[in-house]
Design a protein around this nucleic acid. Structure first.
Lengths: 171, 171
DNA sequence: TATGGTGATGTCAGCAACTGACATCGCTTG
DNA sequence: CAAGCGATGTCAGTTGCTGACATCACCATA
């Protein structure tokens, strides 16, 4: 992260990262599948959190309500360490390769949400659509959260985006 | 495409592609930004079609209706040449690298849709959410369309997914 | 204590994707 | 016919990434 911040992602070679870490290039690739993965290794934990929250949602909750609870829980988590999120996002926003990885990780989250909903008895395409919609909501809320101008807390921004979704699609 | 079909994407080197095409490796990279881009160069035309359809939608149409018209137009286009779409999708589904590229191209389409909606006077976050939702609908419909079992036409599948979205998010 | 197993790291050689710099060739245009 | 221009070839080089094998620290147990 330090090197990516100093020189930018593209100008940072794996050799340089390894050197700074006091390790070998080969060792780097044993810990991270590729150069990009450094920035995304946290996605697994996030997925566990989201899936867990959906699973634990009361049976009375509608699919979208269950997803909303999961998003809020994730929002609370991100509130810890906002500075890191901002820096990370700056690096990603400056590089298309990284955006590809980010976007597919998000797609993976959507799929995991859908799967968790199916285990609650939600049928397709409702499950898939709810997963996709939930991630879209999160993405938009997160975007606003990292923008300097906005001082609202993330869970609040999630609720805002969620009601906007209902307005747009309702009918 | 032929080589990707024969040996799979990973086992096909750019050198092999260039040889089959009777060109140089260097020339390949002048036509395609990277090895993956071969399968996605058509995305630009699709984007133009979608954006054009949204722009041409009657002013009375709601954001989601305008987006739906665009999706249906794209659906008609894909109905030509279903075989090619199926083969292409088989290659992509077999390779994570390609899925990354596909997913970010779809994100690009969503952004373009949102931008076209904004030019119609739709505000954010409604514009962004409608763009994302529309692409989600398209993705799900397309998935079903390429599946062997389904014999419905794509525009019809799009309408199905669309009404499912309304059911899920309505309220 | 010696022995052997296990997991993390190092070493090395090599492939394949991609790039920059420069040369060449064919076609069009004045 | 000369000049210009776009597409292609040539070549050398960097970087990401992998497989195979060696080493080393640590731990369990005979």
């Amino acid at each position: 992260m330090a090197l990516y911040g100093e020189r930018g992602y593209e100008n940072t070679t794996v050799a340089a990262i390894a050197e700074r870490a006091g390790l070998t290039e080969r060792t780097f690739f044993r810990h991270f599948a590729d150069k990009r993965e450094v920035l995304f290794s946290g996605a697994a934990a996030l997925q566990d959190l989201l899936v867990g929250a959906i699973t634990d949602a009361p049976r009375s909750a509608t699919p979208l309500e269950a997803a909303a609870m999961a998003l809020r829980a994730a929002g609370e988590l991100f509130e810890q360490g906002r500075a890191g999120s901002v820096q990370r996002q700056r690096v990603i926003d400056a590089n298309p390769e990284l955006q590809e990885r980010e976007v597919i990780k998000l797609a993976g989250l959507a799929a995991a949400l859908a799967e968790a909903l199916r285990r609650r008895g939600v049928k397709d395409p409702a499950a898939s659509l709810t997963g996709e919609a939930a991630i879209a909501v999160f993405r938009i809320a997160f975007e606003r959260w990292v923008a300097e101008s906005n001082r609202k807390r993330l869970p609040r921004l999630i609720d805002d985006a969620l009601s906007a979704l209902k307005t747009v699609a309702g009918g």
